[in-house]
């Protein structure tokens, strides 16, 4: 869950990469760690087996910097994808603010994708969360796989709620940042909406309730857009797809990773750090903040203003009377 700390002047959000085993969740995180600016990232920590399979989770903090006076940070986690690690997968989901579901585009993996997505729905339900109300996106990874399904087929089988989807070849870094950027935007949008608490005009609310997914003319570009040349509207969806409550846009944003090259069995780069990386020492946590008082503007009191006006009026009348009396007295004498 979002933590808002006015003493540290911080907003903390938790984002989880979810999906079946070997779909590329850890690779996504490694690419983020590799390419994020040094001052914005902390260490990448992996709790994994000797075979480089995630055992508990991978973790890295990503610092968005100062946003309207609040240091905004994302804690990025992956889960172990293998079926028998469900208990640990569920633990990582605790308090999640947004999910990136990383699906494997290999046609033979579609059943695992569907099973994992269903598992996500069920695990969220155990925390009392409805996936339709949780910011989430789907990444179709391994688009370079020779046996990759068409995006339309993947959409129809996997994207039940019409959320934004992205094509990716994660180990080459393609599609990784657009996916994360969109999800991060959706999470921050949910915080902003929470902050407004329904008090402000609903114009800032995403127009999702009236959007018809699958009708490109009615589908605006994502609020946090992927490269324009790669966006395209999502394919026609089932009737349930307009329930994607957390999605700021129903449009599908896809990077242009359409090339079909032969596929490596394991998409992770051979030199990728799987244990704790030493790169990017965290610039996040070094005695940087002095707590400041929370300034709260008091409500204006109408009665106080009225009393001030009356007092000033009386003084003015008194002064005028004094001047008149002075001149009259002078004339009389």
């Amino acid at each position: 869950m979002v933590q808002i700390n006015f003493a540290l002047k911080e907003v903390n959000c938790k984002i989880v990469f979810y999906g079946p085993g070997m779909s590329g969740k850890t690779t996504n995180l490694e690419i983020v760690h590799e390419k994020a600016p040094e001052e914005n990232k902390g260490e990448l920590t992996s709790i994994s087996t000797d075979g480089d399979r995630t055992l508990f989770f991978d973790f890295m903090p990503l610092d968005l910097g100062n946003v309207a006076g609040m240091r905004t940070k994302f804690q990025l986690y992956t889960v172990p994808g293998q079926v028998y690690y469900n208990s640990t997968r569920k633990l990582v989901l605790q308090g999640v603010d947004g999910v990136i579901f990383v699906a494997d585009s290999d046609a033979e993996k579609m059943s695992e994708n569907i099973e994992s997505y269903q598992n996500l729905i069920e695990n969220l339900q155990e925390y009392g969360k409805d996936i339709r109300e949780l910011p989430h996106v789907i990444q179709y990874n391994k688009r370079d796989h020779a046996n990759a399904m068409s995006v339309e087929d993947m959409d129809s089988q996997l994207n039940k709620f019409g959320v934004p989807t992205f094509e990716a070849v994660a180990y080459r870094g393609e599609g990784v940042f657009p996916t994360l950027k969109t999800l991060a935007g959706m999470v921050l949008e949910s915080i902003d909406r929470m902050d407004r608490g329904g008090k402000r005009a609903p114009a800032a609310e995403p127009a999702r309730a009236t959007q018809k997914v699958g009708k490109p003319a009615a589908a605006p570009a994502p609020r946090v857009a992927a490269p324009a040349s790669t966006q395209r509207p999502s394919s026609p969806k089932s009737a349930g797809s307009n329930r994607a409550a957390a999605a700021p846009s129903m449009a599908t944003a896809r990077p242009s990773a359409r090339g079909k090259a032969p596929v490596a069995a394991n998409p992770r780069p051979a030199a990728a750090p799987m244990r704790t990386s030493t790169a990017g020492k965290p610039a996040l946590s070094q005695n940087r903040r002095q707590a400041q008082p929370v300034a709260r503007v008091p409500a204006r009191r109408a009665s106080g203003g009225l009393a001030l006006v009356i007092t000033l009026s009386v003084l003015l009348v008194g002064a005028a009377a004094g001047v008149v009396y002075f001149f009259m007295g002078s004339n009389l004498s």
Partner: peptide
């Protein structure tokens, strides 16, 4: 209660995301 993050939080957050990504 609703935390007061300021009216500019949402707008600034989007700018920061653009800058980072």
């Amino acid at each position: 209660e609703s935390p007061d993050l300021g009216a500019d939080y949402g707008t600034n957050a989007k700018k920061s995301l653009d800058k980072l990504f």
